[in-house]
Design a binder for these strands. Structure first.
Lengths: 364, 364
DNA sequence: ACTTCAACCTGTAACGTTTCAAAAATAAAA
DNA sequence: TTTTATTTTTGAAACGTTACAGGTTGAAGT
């Protein structure tokens, strides 16, 4: 029972395995990352005690607890994620499921930064699970759920009747959606109030004397299409304006397509004198198309646009831009999933962000 | 030894544990994800054999191998990542270390999409490890290496003498850098040829009759600052032009700052008649600042700019834009790290992407 | 002195995988 | 047949963690 202790380079001391020949003390230095065993050896306690002491279990003496925690901090102990995960099933991972066809515009960066911010002080890591819009959107969700590769999921491009949501609910898997659903189900989510945005946008254009408005909306399968369209339609009616629909083009379409369709539209007899646009990069195309048709911003037409970056004003000061804080969205979404994992009340996990200091004409 | 087999819902059959009382067959259905044990039970083989058969180990009979693989596919077996990770130390994770102060512009989205694409058919997952430019950039690297939370790292904002690179080399940790170093060390990397870009840009401006050029460069601590500056300087000399330096402002500065400094510069007596810009979003600010000073693009000044999105032309067709394919960069970086992990020859893991169909004047 | 009880601590087993050393089965050689 | 290779399969151990079911203590109650 009393051979010389091997040098304290790691948890390589197994004096209680009786049948192992105690010949050479394993000269090859392991990578030497401390484990519970290391601390157990240093303190003379059992691994179980150490494990408990580190997580403030009640049945551990105050002195012991402090001693263990102190040593742990000293030697920089970090729980082995694989160990925890294998034993408990908890991955400490949040999966962000991303559409890789997404148009540019900083949307993805911002949401990731927001999530990162929320995760920073926690034990969670962020993993990005990509999928192509052309494939089944359920596929990546199923993958994560089936393989248990995360504790929670964040999805966007939410639909009113979203099968991913249904799937995750059915499997009791924690998640949060960017955008709301309309399935009679309560679930964690964060959304920007696109109804309010569109309504305010219309009113602004009305106040400028514009009468014939066009909405550049998201694809109609997405939830926020409906919100935005409803807000638009209600305000158009309220202000006694008319809508000039622009068919066959959405925020999902390429810059080139939007530009071209816009130009076509603007060359027609009955053309809009006001635009409401749902995204910054599409607005670029809108402007370009309008100018292709020989029309001038501020004179022939006004545009109200959402933006997640601050670029619009730089080259077209006359655009009325409303900032959507996507970074905040990421933050809230992360908070939501984590809350959902922790079993918090769903009511506290649903947030709606209002269009902020909207519609200031920032022309300089 | 011969009690009825429990229903085939999972690996809950432990007939070889002799001391366990064999009372109830565990009615509670587990989550039922198949493991090696499940397959072992179904095939009547040992777990070891199954494990080997699945990874095409040579010492397994062809018939057995096929049988095992077939069943595995049938029941949708997926190796438990925690198990593998705990046993082998291999995480099957690549960590992308990101500066969360990064300016917008789709850079991050694109690089992530590119990485995802490269990782799609592999067993690797992508994890995003954020840090703030204001903190020590070594910190996240150290975290990943120390906790072994990934098999490889991708970093950007590479410096000529980069302590992160030094650290990872010292620790034998696989990585790839976005941007090259100048430390006399060979390591996996991908870079855009900013020397060539800047030189071509200068020549283009010279050909347009421009004589006094200003470079909007990255911060001087980054590697590609030097490449870009050298390319710029060499071509300026070669063409017999002069440089009007714009001090105190880099691509890292906010849109507002760049705009303001540009306006200041353009109001001076001796102002540039040509700009070379290192990033799309900064170019927006450059244009705005120039126009703030009452000058006109194409008449008073020309701008050549890199861009990673296709937005620049839309609102200022006269800009000469060179596309940097950041998605490709992500793809190459991922390929590089994985190659590095696999121990491939470093020479094959270094790529340099040339400015493509550069400097076409795409005005329409 | 004996039991009882709480407070504190501990070894064992298990999560799913791979590696090790060795056993069984088969084929080849004698 | 027996011996010797060779091929194929195998149980046990280990990675680091936590849950479970017991142990030790020492003090309090009787």
């Amino acid at each position: 029972m009393s051979h010389a202790h091997p040098a304290l380079t790691g948890p390589d001391m197994d004096e209680h395995t009786p049948d192992t020949p105690v010949d050479e003390p394993e000269a090859g230095s392991d990578q030497g990352r401390p484990t519970l065993k290391t601390i157990a050896f240093m303190t003379g306690l059992g691994v179980t005690t150490v494990s408990r002491a580190l997580k403030d279990a009640p049945e551990i003496g105050a002195a012991t607890r402090k001693r263990v925690q102190m040593i742990a901090r000293q030697i920089g102990y970090r729980p082995n994620r694989a160990g925890v995960r294998l034993r408990t099933g908890k991955t400490n991972v949040i999966s962000l499921i991303l559409d890789t066809e997404e148009q540019v515009g900083g949307f993805v960066s911002d949401i990731i930064y927001g999530i990162s911010e929320a995760l920073a002080k926690t034990s969670y890591h962020l993993i990005v699970t990509p999928y192509s819009r052309n494939n089944d959107p359920l596929e990546p969700v199923r993958y994560v759920v089936e393989t248990g590769s995360a504790d929670g999921i964040i999805i966007s491009r939410t639909e009113p009747d979203d099968k991913r949501v249904r799937y995750m609910i059915e499997h009791g898997f924690p998640f949060a959606t960017h955008g709301r659903t309309d399935m009679g189900i309560n679930h964690p989510s964060h959304d920007f109030d696109n109804y309010e945005y569109a309504a305010q946008a219309v009113r602004k254009l009305a106040a400028l004397g514009r009468r014939r408005l066009t909405l550049l909306a998201p694809p109609s399968n997405l939830s926020y299409y409906h919100h935005m369209r409803d807000g638009f339609a209600d305000a158009v009616a309220e202000c006694g304006l008319i809508e000039i629909p622009m068919n066959g083009v959405t925020l999902d379409h390429s810059i080139q397509e939007v530009r071209q369709k816009t130009a076509q539209l603007m060359r027609r007899e009955l053309r809009p004198d006001g635009f409401v646009s749902g995204s910054g990069s599409s607005t670029f195309a809108l402007v370009a198309g309008t100018e292709d048709a020989g029309l001038e911003l501020g004179r022939d037409v006004d545009i109200v646009s959402k933006q997640s970056s601050k670029l619009l004003h730089l080259l077209r000061p006359k655009i009325f831009a409303v900032d959507e804080n996507v970074r905040l969205a990421g933050f809230e979404l992360a908070r939501s999933v984590m809350g959902s994992i922790a079993g918090k009340d769903i009511a506290t996990l649903q947030t709606l962000s209002k269009p902020g200091d909207a519609l200031q004409d920032k022309q300089g």
